[in-house]
């Protein structure tokens, strides 16, 4: 389980942003977790709630938005979500797909006391 490492990186990023914005305590953190990121939302929440104790985010709430894998077909232009990790175009059967979203974990926003 690597969610503790990930939560640790997240907290460091939060602290950096709070400092830059001269914020005080953090109220809410919104992250986007791509299905292909290999990060399990429930475990991330457990790890975050454990590690936040000794940080500026100790009273914050973590909101996790799960992002499905979004592809665009290079052959026919179809854009849509991938189901069950089957990387094939639903319209034309092509394997020439670009992944538009769903790979990374992104810190979207932080609500903090100014």
């Amino acid at each position: 389980m690597h969610e503790f490492s990930v939560a640790n990186s997240l907290l460091r990023l939060i602290e950096e942003n709070v400092r830059q914005n001269h914020g005080k305590s953090v109220i809410k953190v919104v992250v986007k977790v791509g299905v292909l990121s290999g990060i399990e939302p429930h475990l991330l929440k457990v790890a975050f709630d454990h590690l936040k104790e000794r940080s500026v985010a100790d009273k914050s709430e973590l909101i996790i938005e799960v992002q499905q894998v979004l592809i665009r077909c290079r052959e026919c232009g179809y854009t849509g979500e991938v189901e069950d990790y089957q990387f094939v175009c639903k319209e034309c059967g092509s394997h020439q797909l670009d992944i538009l979203d769903g790979k990374d974990m992104v810190l979207k926003s932080i609500q903090m006391e100014a």
Binding site: S9, L10, V106, K108, Q111
Partner: peptide, 22 residues
């Protein structure tokens, strides 16, 4: 900017990959 029960709060957009350093 908004305020919750009198305290001033601010919502900052970050949009950074969490594993960007890695």
């Amino acid at each position: 900017n908004s305020s919750i029960s009198g305290r001033k709060t601010v919502e900052v957009e970050v949009l950074a990959k969490v594993l960007d350093a890695n």
